[in-house]
Structures are given as structure tokens and as C-alpha cells.
Computed example of a mutant assay.
Amino acid sequence: MSEEEFTARLAPLRREILAHCYRMTGSVHDAEDMLQETYLRAWRAMRGFENRSSLRTWMFRIATNACLTHLEGRRRRPLPTGIGAPPADPSEQPRMDTSVPWLEPLPDSLVWSTAPADPAETAVARETVRLAFVAALQHLTAQQRAVLLLREVLAWSAAEVADALDLSVAAVNSTLQRARAHMANVQDVAPLEPTDPRHRQLLERYVAAFEAYDVAAIVELLAADVVWEMPPFPGWYQGPVAVGELIATWCPATGPGSMRLLPTSANGLPAYGLYMRGEDGVHRPFQVQQVTLGEDGVRHVTVWFGAELFARFGLPAELAPGQGVVAPG
């Protein structure tokens, strides 16, 4: 088989494998590296592929073992809410901790570029890359992650997992049991899909409040138990009053028009690239916010900083006058 034929045959699997590597590593950068490593290993081993399993199963076996090798000796990637500290005091200036390898967002464009044939399958796939699910996976050992994902996301049999990971079936079953117990303790409730007009209106109001730098309006849209977190700052905040004080005290915006937002999506949920106006009047990348809705308002906001994120999400490096958004896309 030529390299061109090999690439064409495996091309339909790229997005699935990237998502699998992201679940394993918690990093888009690492997932892309593991995707390339998987294809390199597969190319080298292609002559030994004897069709004893499907090509898809063979590739996921390679990808999983590549990720396990990569994760040896590496620290887990948490969110601030996952490091065990209580909510932070919003009156104290947030301090970065860049020594922690924080969990990264997954741009939807990397895994969903076209409308799928079966919407039900999409719903299942989105649940497996939700930020809360991937964050929960970080509480597991690498082997527990692998077993859980192969058994419950990819629906492999215990025997198939045992063969892929060089374990006994009994070891697979006991590892899966421990992984399920951990996940039950740390998983979040399912988020609302913003398909209802009321939910879309809530997002519109959220964006408008930020663009007006109207802290009171932002607070009004937050659920009573809202959580706000923003790696690489290890502090996290709970409750509308605390989040409002955080934004009013430490946000560098000076008034209406300081911030402008462009819609995107991450981990299957709405997200926004927030641009901050500089002294020269140009709006430049400041943060990416992923917004999770609940029945009583915005329930969770996760914020990441760094201009490099904007390029990964396909967002512009700066905004021309008049470029922005009020309604989510």
C-alpha cells in the first residue's frame, strides 16, 4: 500500500482519533501530537496488519498505547475547581500559576466540520468531550482512563481491551469498576443545549452585558450556584456576588465598548472569543470563555487566556471597527 493510499484509507478516522487522544491527555496540543504519532506508528506497522480486527479497532489500539506512553510520569491536567481548594476571595488579586499543566479547551471545528447523518450519534459524541467529562477523567490514572474510554465510549468488550492493553480480563473489569466509582464522584450535571429560544436569548443578553461592561446585568444572568474559573489562575469563584465582584474589581475594561465578543464553540458548548480594547483603540485577543447554561441562568463559565488560543479557534488576531457580535452564531 502506498503512503497516499494509506492516508486516504485512514483519513475518515482522524477526527475520532483526535477526540480520543484529547480525552486521554486533556490537551489539544498533545492530542494533535499523539494523532501524528499514531499515524506514524500505523504506517510503520501496516505490513503487520493482518485484518484480525477492523482497521478502526487497530488504529484506536495504537492511539491508546501511544497516549499511555506519552502520559508516563506526567502530571494530570486539572481545572481550578479540580485541585481541591475552596472558592477564592474575589477581593484579592488573582495570581497565575503557570507551573500547572491546565486542562485545555477543544475547538468544535477540530471534531465536527460537517453535519452528521445521525443526530443521536452526535449527542453521544458531544457528551464524551464535554469539559466536565474530560476534567473528571483527569482524576483517573492513565490506565483507568484508557479502560473506561475503550469500554464505555468505544464500546469494546473486556476481552478486546485486555488484548489491547496487555491486561487480563479480570484486571480490565476491576479497573473499570474503580474508574466508574471515581467518575461518579466528580462528574457534573448535564448542561443545557442552547437550542431553546429562551436559552439563546440568555446568551444574547450575556454577550450584550459584557460588551456594555454592565456588571449588574452580568450578575443578573448568573445562576445562584454559578462557578467561574480561569486557568492559569488557580482560584475559582462561586455565586453571582463573588463573580460580579471579581469582574468589577479586576477586569481591565473601562466601560461600554471596551470588550467585544465573537462566537465560537468548545467541547460541544457555546464559547466566545473576548477582545479587549487597547490604548490605540484596537480590540485584541484577551480570553476565550466557554459558557454552560442551567435552568436558572449561566451555571458555569470557564475562561482561558492566550492569543494563541484564538488562532486555534479560527478567530481573528484583532477586530476591525464595527466587528463583533450580539447574537450567538
Score class of each variant (00 low, 15 high):
R198E: 15
F286C: 07
Q177N: 07
V172K: 03
V288M: 11
A216R: 13
A248K: 11
R75M: 14
E50I: 08
C67G: 01
R52F: 08
M1Q: 10
T264P: 07
C21L: 11
A217F: 10
C67L: 00
V298Q: 09
Q201D: 15
A170H: 10
G244P: 06
R145K: 13
A253H: 03
R312V: 15
L203A: 05
A159K: 11
R312F: 00
Y272C: 01
D188Q: 13
E32L: 15
T195E: 14
L274Q: 11
E211L: 00
R284E: 11
Y213D: 15
D166Y: 06
L137A: 05
W304N: 10
T98D: 14
V147F: 05
V147W: 09
A212G: 06
P78Y: 04
A158T: 09
W250S: 01
A224W: 01
L148Q: 11
L103A: 02
A159V: 12
G73C: 01
R95P: 00
T64D: 09
R47Y: 10
S265R: 12
S91C: 03
E193Q: 14
A88G: 10
G297H: 06
P194T: 00
W228V: 00
T81Y: 05
W58Y: 13
L167K: 00
V298K: 03
T64R: 02
S53W: 04
E193A: 15
T38N: 00
D214N: 14
F60Y: 13
P78H: 05
M230V: 01
H283V: 03
S157Y: 01
P107I: 03
H283G: 00
F60T: 12
W43D: 10
A184T: 06
A158G: 14
T114E: 15
Y275W: 09
E279R: 06
M96K: 12
I83K: 04
E50G: 12
S258Q: 06
P285S: 05
R145H: 05
Q144C: 02
P80E: 08
H283S: 09
G73M: 06
P12K: 04
F305W: 10
L192C: 07
A209I: 03
E220I: 00
L79Q: 03
A115R: 10
M34K: 04
D196S: 12
A253C: 09
L221K: 02
A327F: 13
I247R: 01
W304K: 06
P328L: 05
M96S: 12
A179D: 06
C251R: 05
